[in-house]
Design a protein around this nucleic acid. Sequence first.
DNA 1: TTGAAAGCGCTAACAA
DNA 2: TTGTTAGCGCTTTCAA
Lengths: 339, 339
Amino acid sequence: MKQISTMRDVADRAGVSVATVSNYLNDAKPVASKTRARIESAMQELKFVPSIAGRMMRGGRSAAVGFISIDAPDPYFVEVARGIEDVARESGCVLISCNTGGDLTREKQYVEALATMRIVGAIVHPAFTGAGESHLDRLRDAGSSVVLLGADESDYDACGVSTDDVRGGFLAVEHLISLGHKRIAFVGGPGGERQMRDRFAGALGAVRAACLAELSLQRIDASGTSIAARAEVGARIAALSERPTAVFCASDSLALAVCGTFARLGIRVPEDIAVVGYANTDQTELASIPISTIAVPQYEIGRTAAHLLMSESQSGHQHTRTVFQPRLIVRESTVGHRG
Amino acid sequence: MKQISTMRDVADRAGVSVATVSNYLNDAKPVASKTRARIESAMQELKFVPSIAGRMMRGGRSAAVGFISIDAPDPYFVEVARGIEDVARESGCVLISCNTGGDLTREKQYVEALATMRIVGAIVHPAFTGAGESHLDRLRDAGSSVVLLGADESDYDACGVSTDDVRGGFLAVEHLISLGHKRIAFVGGPGGERQMRDRFAGALGAVRAACLAELSLQRIDASGTSIAARAEVGARIAALSERPTAVFCASDSLALAVCGTFARLGIRVPEDIAVVGYANTDQTELASIPISTIAVPQYEIGRTAAHLLMSESQSGHQHTRTVFQPRLIVRESTVGHRG
DNA sequence: TTGAAAGCGCTAACAA
DNA sequence: TTGTTAGCGCTTTCAA
């Protein structure tokens, strides 16, 4: 590894001052075309790569946006990330994607690392702990903006984007009840405690609203976010003595995994058991049995969050909350083949 | 947004010099416990977040490792990323995950951005272009190490980790031939041209090695990496006048999507058509119909790459290539229910 | 159109 | 054990 060259080196080689090189690089002031040419070839010869350090020293920021999520590889977050990235790129920022696995310690590590890097800001889907999100202050302290996903005012005072998950849970179970199901299971799991809580609350609300005596809602949780852990829930449901006739899975990933397990066990969906997912990720439409689900505008959520972040970092305006409304999408996993 | 406080502020507030604060922060020299306490409370009061800029100026690097891949959300890369992250964290580095979508322009943007940030190094799964990977020199020029995934010596001189994909393709098709299939389709697609090429070459090799007159291998490619594009290939295969009796999909994602389409069209797997995937991601085992596939040690690949990166960045030793051998895993998508 | 010089936040060598 | 000081790579006045 040779010496890394600096603006000073480029300036010397081109026979100009560092100020001129800086002006050239930032289009800050006009630079004579002959001078430009000399600078350009000097940069080529010296393989100059500007360092962000110098810029940062002058109060500048890393041209990066952080995305801290519970389960980055989940198709839901993947779509959100795509929305964020598309907006971030318009502002010349790269996306730094960090996966906490729902672990608060890791979340804190990432927050600290990103704060140290003086990124423009971070979009955070917190591992909800009920203890507030004061560790996010570290980002603020470092001058980075914060936008929350799936949290509310009581959690932390920041711009936020979320979905009305109580309503979503309600829609899902209302649908199942309207199909005549009496024994319904709610399938939750780790990752997004707050979402789970709201979706379950909505599900319960639908049961109450139905006012039917024999209606039961049973809750079952996955033990982890791995596919194996999610698939295992399906086996547990199948083994239940009084097996439910319908399950509402609080995420599409759960629904997909549960459906896979049912198929392998020879349990037919929806004839033996109906399944509803949550989020409407691509997979649900194109699964072996297309899955009914609660649609959430994932990509839009990402874009909206990124826009909020960008405008907050530029003008530091007042905090805003955007709440999207979910809607029910009916597919074969609840109504069977149509027509 | 108040002023961001600096070491200078902390030092003043604690009534010590900046050097002492620095020593405290880096455990560089012993600091008296009374002094420590004063520094600590000053840091608290001022909400001090150290800036990486200062450190970087002194030749330091961002405690980050980059991962530039073609399709970050693909389960294959997710597992690789997990391997990288686990190793990176041991060295106190965060993972910056960047998704190129197979687009060389975006790959270059990310390379430049990471080079500017003076990261420790990057692990790159390039969008193979045949034109070499000279843009990766930018990382080198910035003093960052580079480790390649799925490329070979002819592409770029760097440490690398890959899989013997020719062998993998051979194993897959050999398996199908051994089951008596005569009309076989190879399903490829964008993302990892070099892998596609090798897997197809291996598949062809198996056909040739079989020395059977009526054996045909037809190639069909997906038009994109979206689930919809992948699912569409299944429909195209189903519509073929001389429909193949077996398909070898060059990735598990393709295999899963194709199987979904087949199921929706009422085509039975494996009775009507057998399917083999590639990589052995979790999904294949837990799909509705467990999918036969070519196992590749994804997590190990990530770990190995990260170890190479870390040791290169520390000692700049000679370049090393690790090639993993794939192996066949037989499941129901080719042999039906067993027992 | 260009240059000189100050300063950003931090580390490290040296002095006290 | 603590302080002084000289940079590190860059931007940005201000002057030429």
